[in-house]
């Protein structure tokens, strides 16, 4: 059985006349932790959002564990899947957002248990148990009844991570999850992500935190103008950048 979790093949995307992705291909196997770096506008966030179908893409295909998501080939024509199927496809991945996007009217534990109950049809008791265990794993065992408005940014993001990963996705997507945090709160979130990586979670991480990317990734890709410009191990990318663009980029981030 193939070890491939994520297969992106030749994905093109444009906003109207504005091309954003020019044919991106990428493969992730089980346990891979791939960081995506690049300047804003390089298309890295757009690529991430294509993987969980928050963005449409007009050419190419994305498959998760062998199943093509979002679109299908019918009589040679490419068609969008219906919303039910898309919701199912989305449940294969978990996403953590830059602005946390916790549900403010629900407590931390409810944020985690509601999707478990409504999307995965778990019972209240099961959902509660799973939610509590993940809350502990992100370091917030006794903050379950707190509401997002009562939590710090770092705590909110950790709850957001717990919420996404409690759904047992095949792949976790992180979209610049520390960019909106105060500096002193960033590490608590990065530590959680590192721990999840060590436990073997397959991850695709868009980040500006270069040191973190260097420490946690099994592979790093550098995107520029809608294409993967360079790909390699953290050593290769950060210590031995080959292309001029990557060298310039690393210089500007002072890593």
């Amino acid at each position: 059985m193939s070890d491939t979790v994520l297969q992106i093949s030749g994905v093109h995307k444009a906003y109207g006349d504005n091309p954003v992705l020019h044919g991106v291909s990428l493969t992730l196997n089980k346990g891979d932790v791939v960081s995506v770096i690049g300047s804003s506008g390089s298309g890295k966030t757009t690529l991430l959002r294509c993987v969980n179908l928050l963005e449409e893409f007009h050419q190419g295909s994305i498959s998760i564990e062998g199943k093509q998501i979002g679109y299908e080939e019918k009589d040679g024509k490419r068609g969008k899947l219906n919303s039910r199927q898309i919701a199912k496809d989305r449940a294969l991945t978990g996403m953590v957002f830059q602005s946390f996007n916790l549900f403010p009217h629900l407590s931390a534990i409810e944020n985690i248990s509601l999707p478990l109950r409504k999307v995965q049809n778990k019972t209240k008791a099961q959902a509660q148990e799973i939610a509590n265990s993940w809350l502990s794993r992100v370091g917030l065992p006794d903050r379950g009844s707190a509401f997002p408005g009562q939590l710090s940014g770092g705590q909110q993001q950790r709850v957001a991570i717990a919420r996404a990963i409690a759904m047992n996705p095949k792949l976790m997507l992180f979209d610049e999850v520390t960019s909106a945090l105060d500096p002193e709160l960033i590490n608590e979130v990065l530590d959680v992500i590192k721990a999840l990586a060590q436990d073997g979670m397959t991850m695709l991480i868009v980040t500006h935190e270069m040191r973190f990317a260097y420490e946690v990734s099994s592979r790093v890709i550098f995107m520029n103008e809608g294409l993967i410009a360079e790909e390699g191990t953290p050593e290769e990318i950060f210590k031995n950048p080959k292309t001029e663009r990557l060298q310039a980029f690393l210089k500007s981030t002072k890593f």
Partner: peptide, 27 residues
């Protein structure tokens, strides 16, 4: 209601009906 709420709900696999009932309307 912030568009991020709908995106988070979608990312978690909620159907539109569920998103509307549990996330959008309460807010």
């Amino acid at each position: 209601v912030h568009v991020g709420q709908t995106e988070a709900a979608k990312a978690l696999g909620f159907s539109f009906r569920q998103t509307f009932t549990f996330i959008l309307m309460p807010q």
